[in-house]
Amino acid sequence: MELTANIPNLESMSECSIKPYDSIYLGMPYCWEYEGNLIAGGDDLSSAIELLHVMGKNAYVSTFAVPRNKDLKRVFRAIDLAAEMSDGIEANNLGVMRYVTKEYPDMKVIAGGLANVYTASTAELLYSIGVSRIVPAYELSIEDIEKIKETGVEVEVVVHGKVPVGIGHECFLKKFSSAVGKECPKICREEMFFRSEDLVLKPFGHATLSGKDICMYEHIDKLKFADAFRIEAVTERIGYRERIGRIYRNLIERGFSRSDFEELRSISENGFANGYYFNKAGQIYIPG
């Protein structure tokens, strides 16, 4: 089982934070302006890929999730470099995905969770044009994901972390910059949440994430048909990636540990949810 996580910038790439993982997705797909964003240009991306390879890890490169025409030059730049140096390219935009499979047919192409892959028939079509791995739409149940896996494509599922509940045209953090007294890009250095009764959301760039951590620690056996487990950590604070990764590495290699599970609970500031895996509202948590 391949354990993966995502890292937005070089600053977040400590050896400890990478160690538990087999593969790392590089870059912040929700916001170009994020400080040090590895996919926004500059030399950091090649340094990051080299660093991962020295550590014996796979380096996958994420691409901006909702590219408009004005963004394509920057997207192409990151893809060109990724095609030369990395082990795979993740795209959440179907046009970008098709561009990579055409221009770089030998490249491993991963359809991200925001690519809206809801059906086995969509998965089959993408597989036929060269997409080798799919992160199914977050909204799918385990049964729906198993159908996608049956097409032969590799499947990666999120086992822990905050997943997007939507992606839009604007950054909601920026909308509140005068109330906060901080401008972009400093405003996302500290966390913002939207709260309404028991519902919590975390705005971040163009995406808005589940405020609760999706946690499948207690149900991991139900996802064993997948090829890779992802820890969604791209918007998280220092230390999160390392601690969560260590706990899931232990789970894969040694099995369930009550103390590890309690540690997971202590890390999660807004509690757990199972996402949509059990065909319930995404914010509900069903204990194992």
Partner: peptide, 8 residues
């Protein structure tokens, strides 16, 4: 691109 209703 909205799953908010399904999430909530």
């Amino acid at each position: 691109r909205c799953q908010l209703s399904a999430y909530a």
